[in-house]
């Protein structure tokens, strides 16, 4: 594996290897005197972020630094990106620095795949448009593995704005590859057209979807979507598709509540649900660092890297 562009590209063996490595990374660093490994010393990882995302950038940066890599941040606000330089020209500029890996977040679906043609190093997709966010799906899978003891045979409901969600598009493929039963729950306006071939069940009814769910993953829904007639009002959306305490009560005792963040409290998730012990939201953030360490390790030590 030279790049990590999508969750769909991962075979079950590859995904499980990454999840195993994730656990080993967590063990290798947790509770140590020096929470840092020399593994990637002398390597350069560039964070190329075309969207503001402090949390994802920080997570990648922490992961790279824990492995002793040098990190260069190319953020939209502090570089020439704002001056209208093309992705290609930026890539060629980066290439001159010779990074072993480029972590890219970009509003245009497919931008990381394009980038692979212009840089020699490994390309890690940190979220592209509404396409993919593979490390998010991996950290979600890792969280489920830890909380539910496994993924095979578990039922996962992904709820909300599937249409605009790269998180959903990555989780659908990864979780089903790992043997989960995946159910998408959303109003028809927020489901992509023509997903008959996806390995998912589809439901418009959240209540009915919760009773047998081992995990429910709530997606962020932008209030502004109502201006494009995806739903009538934020209130109606919250009433029909928001996870509140009553609905939490419909779920099995062991079931967990996940959210990739950032949350709209009161919209897709009630504040009390978000803060309940069954919510794994902060755990997901912590696991994100381990997953990204595992992926960086995998991509930069596989003999393909220069």
């Amino acid at each position: 594996m030279k790049h990590l562009l999508t969750a769909k590209q991962l075979t079950r063996d590859e995904a499980e290897l990454i999840l195993d490595l994730t656990g080993q990374m967590a063990e290798a660093v947790t509770g140590r005197e020096v929470p840092k490994l020399p593994t990637l010393r002398g390597r350069t990882v560039v964070n190329l972020f075309y969207e503001d995302s402090t949390r994802t950038r920080t997570s990648f940066e922490t992961a790279a630094k824990r492995l002793s890599a040098d990190v260069v941040n190319f953020a939209a606000k502090t570089s020439s990106i704002n001056k209208g330089e093309s992705l290609k020209d930026t890539a060629l500029t980066l290439q001159a620095m010779g990074p072993e890996a480029v972590v890219i977040r970009h509003p245009s679906s497919g931008a990381p795949q394009r980038l692979t043609q212009w840089v020699d190093g490994a390309v890690l997709n940190a979220g592209d448009g509404t396409h993919a966010h593979p490390t998010q799906a991996l950290l979600d899978a890792y969280t489920m593995r830890r909380r539910l003891g496994g993924i095979e045979g578990r039922t996962v409901a992904i709820v909300g704005d599937i249409l605009h969600s790269r998180v959903a598009r990555s989780n659908v493929w990864l979780l089903s590859e790992l043997g989960a039963r995946v159910r998408l729950v959303a109003p028809p306006t927020l489901l992509p057209a023509d997903i008959g071939t996806w390995p998912v069940e589809i439901s418009y009814d959240l209540d009915a979807s919760l009773r047998d769910a081992d995990a429910v993953m709530m997606l962020r829904v932008q209030r502004e979507r109502m201006n494009d007639a995806f739903f009538p009002t934020a209130n109606e959306y919250a009433r029909l598709y928001g996870l509140d305490e009553r609905r939490l009560g419909l779920m099995p005792e062991h079931a967990i509540v996940m959210h990739p963040g950032p949350m709209n409290r009161g919209m897709e998730i009630a504040a009390r649900v978000a803060d309940s012990p069954r919510a794994t939201i902060t755990e997901q953030v912590a696991n994100g660092v381990w997953v990204r360490m595992a992926v960086l390790y995998l991509l930069l030590t596989n003999g393909d890297a220069r």
Binding site: S109, G110, G129, T130, A193, I195, W198
Partner: peptide, 11 residues
């Protein structure tokens, strides 16, 4: 708009 756009996340 179809199966491919759904997968690729392109409007």
């Amino acid at each position: 708009e179809g199966a491919v756009s759904a997968e690729l996340g392109l409007p």
